[in-house]
Design a protein around this nucleic acid. Structure first.
Length: 693
DNA sequence: AAGGGCTGTCATACA
DNA sequence: ATTGTATGACAGCCC
């Protein structure tokens, strides 16, 4: 934390940092995510360092803060900004106001957003805000404060600053510590204190006063204007953003990529005097290619910035193509190692110097860079206040795709509550799909999805885990392996788009986003619905940043499952949750099978009943027929009997009385006329003899 | 609003 | 002892 404070307090260092953040903000959604370890590892490393960032601590903070009180400061619904909400960071709110997933997936991502938004980097806000807004609104979705900042930055740098500052003040004004949010009140005030400290670290009081005056005047029109901007942007066709991406990809594929790279930006910025950098916005930078072309019209500012920000690929190109880059690795190797979270931790520590070789060459970021270079990973992690990490963690949770902190808190608090959502609910047609992964692959060498739809993918799939490779493909985690390589910082690149390509995911369906003609509102609605369709376990896994998908956890063989648990460095809480997810998932499938089986049994029994009833009717008919035949035969026998007796005569010629005599058949086939008494007795004797035999 | 169906989850027993 | 499976019971959601 002291390093951070040093950064904040040191003017030049702060400028460098803010510029670094600004530049990183161009790829906050990408580069920093690549360079930083997953929060789990951060927390674990903190735990190893003796820090209180254990899972239990996190949970305690979680519960102590009123569930997701802190995270609740972040608007669960991106577009519906609550003016009374506590400060969550201007940039964050701007981005979230865009309704697009500018999502800090890592704690440091969130920290970047949070820190910059805290007001200590106002001079960079024009850059970062515009960059973030453009990054988030890469598909031409910039609205609200973000668009204001961007539009201001496009024409006049000062206007860009003021625009972003205005937007910031607009957002901050209603969220003063006295914000009337009961559930997050305590946390809000606490966080506001932190924000205030950060504000005091950098003196922008004069600007703030000016802006506050403007805010009071513009406050009334802000919401209306935001709505207008939103509607305006919402009507922008999707093909516009896709067109930019396609053109960029085309240029990249043709090897004539003249697009604006971060390396260019570094050089441009480094060529500027440090003092003048404060007023630098992207609008001042002569952006080559289509970007600069688009800058001619202020009406296309946010689009141009989208283009500029969408050059995130070029950051990787700048890194990958750097001649000093000793950590470049062939894609196969990177892919093979792209799934190891632990390596992301290493990449985190190597981030400052290894991921920005161009900055070293230019010496642009030397103060910060040197400072960062002197820091070990433990220093960085230990110096960063654990509370910050927890905040960031919650923020990152809260900012991920309309994340509803209340829901998550309920997920943890109310074990008995049922979401009523099946796993398949996330696999329905509205689920985020991986069909867009091909789009990501086309992004070029980085293979990273830069548009917001891809970002949402990462949130939905990456956070929960997406499609990780089978454990046998995973690199074995070895903390003692200090010989990490900087190229591991790119693991997420391949990791992300690789598991997007995994065809095994049952939820893979065609993404509606790829359909032309759909409005941004539909997209946002779609994202919201998609998030809502996340099952409880998926939310839980997402909340704990478990790097496996629920389907994987459930469907994995026990050997692979145990191997996976042993290979990954997971907290007890994560392991417990994974086992619970597996148990619940298995049991859910078992219950489904059980019910299906029960239904089948019932159906079979009903069929049996029907068949037996039919058979019974048939047997009844047969019995009736048999009885009828028997009666006929009886009648015939009776008639024959009387006919025979009518013809019989005794020795005196008199008719034989059938009541006194009976006809008896012998074994030799002859028929005897015997008196009934003798016949009865003889019959008895024969039967007795037969029994004796 | 009541009720039935569906689903997820838990507890328990058993293999 | 652990794990998976089966099933009754319960609760929540939806129609």
């Amino acid at each position: 934390m002291k390093h951070l404070k040093r950064w904040w307090s040191a003017g030049g260092g702060l400028l460098h940092l803010t510029l670094l953040l600004s530049l990183a903000g161009l790829r906050v959604d990408l580069d920093l995510y690549l360079l930083l370890p997953p929060p789990t590892l951060l927390r674990d490393e903190l735990l190893l360092l003796g820090g209180p960032a254990s899972s239990a601590y996190a949970l305690n903070r979680f519960s102590a803060s009123g569930g997701w009180g802190r995270a609740g400061q972040l608007h669960p619904k991106g577009r519906e900004l609550d003016p009374a909400a506590p400060p969550e960071g201007q940039l964050l709110r701007e981005v979230r106001a865009l309704g697009v997933p500018f999502i800090p997936r890592t704690r440091v991502d969130a920290w970047l957003v949070h820190s910059v938004a805290a007001g200590s980097a106002d001079e960079a806000h024009g850059l970062l805000g515009a960059a973030a807004a453009s990054s988030a609104g890469g598909a031409g979705t910039s609205v609200d404060g973000g668009s204001q900042a961007v539009q201001g930055g496009g024409g006049d740098p000062r206007a860009a600053q003021s625009g972003s500052l205005d937007a910031e003040e607009e957002e901050k004004a209603p969220v003063e510590p006295t914000a009337q949010v009961p559930d997050a009140g305590g946390c809000a005030s606490e966080e506001n204190e932190v924000l205030r400290e950060k504000h005091e670290a950098v003196d922008h009081s004069s600007q703030r006063e000016e802006n506050e005056e403007r805010v009071s005047a513009q406050k009334e029109n802000s919401l209306q204007q935001n709505n207008e901007d939103e509607n305006k942007v919402a009507e922008k066709p999707d093909w516009e953003a896709e067109k930019n991406t396609e053109s960029r990809n085309e240029r990249h594929l043709n090897g004539t990529d003249t697009s604006f790279s971060l390396e260019d930006l570094f050089q441009l910025l480094s060529s500027q005097p440090e003092n003048s950098l404060e007023g630098v916005s992207l609008g001042d930078i002569p952006l080559p290619g289509s970007i600069s072309d688009g800058m001619n019209s202020s009406a296309h500012h946010h689009v141009n910035f989208s283009q500029a920000i969408s050059q995130d690929v070029n950051l990787h190109e700048a890194i990958l193509l750097c001649p000093n880059n000793t950590f470049r690795r062939n894609p196969v190797t990177r892919t093979s190692q792209s799934q190891e979270p632990f390596l992301q931790l290493n990449s985190h520590t190597t981030n400052p110097e290894q991921t920005l070789p161009g900055t070293n060459s230019t010496g642009f970021l030397s103060p910060v860079d040197n400072h960062m270079r002197n820091l070990t990973s433990q220093d960085l992690l230990y110096d960063l206040d654990v509370n910050i990490f927890d905040e960031i963690n919650l923020m990152s949770l809260g900012t991920e795709d309309d994340f509803d902190p209340i829901n998550v808190s309920q997920l943890f608090d109310e074990r008995d509550s049922d979401s009523g959502l099946s796993l398949d609910s996330s696999h329905n047609s509205t689920s985020v799909t991986k069909s867009n992964s091909s789009h990501c692959v086309c992004e070029g060498a980085t293979g990273y999805c830069t548009d917001h739809k891809s970002s949402s993918h990462h949130d939905l799939e990456g956070a929960v885990g997406g499609n990780y490779p089978e454990p046998n493909k995973l690199c074995h985690m070895d903390h003692s392996d200090s010989g990490f390589h900087g190229d591991l910082t790119f693991q997420h690149v391949f990791h992300n788009h690789t598991y997007h390509l995994q065809p095994s995911a049952p939820e893979s369906t065609s993404e509606p986003f790829s359909l032309p003609g759909r409005s941004q509102k539909i997209r946002s609605r779609y994202l919201e619905d998609t998030d809502r369709n996340l099952s409880r376990d998926e939310w839980r896994a997402k909340a704990l940043h478990i790097p496996f998908s629920v389907d994987e956890i459930v469907g994995m063989p026990v050997d692979s499952f145990n191997s996976m648990l042993s290979r990954y460095y997971l907290t007890d809480l994560q392991v417990s949750l994974i086992r619970d997810i597996r148990r619940r998932g298995k049991n859910k499938v078992a219950a489904q099978n059980c019910r299906k089986r029960k239904l089948d049994i019932i159906l079979n029994l009903e069929n049996d009943v029907c068949n037996l009833q039919a058979k019974k009717e048939t047997l009844k008919r047969e019995r009736a027929q048999c009885n009828k035949a028997i009666n006929i035969m009886k009648q015939k026998l009776h008639d024959l009997y009387h006919d025979v007796f009518s013809r019989l005569r005794d020795e005196e010629g008199r008719p034989v009385n059938p009541n006194h005599y009976a006809l008896q058949c012998t074994h030799d086939g002859s028929v005897l006329l015997v008196p009934k008494e003798l016949g009865a007795s003889s019959h008895k004797k024969e039967t007795q003899k037969g029994k004796r035999k």
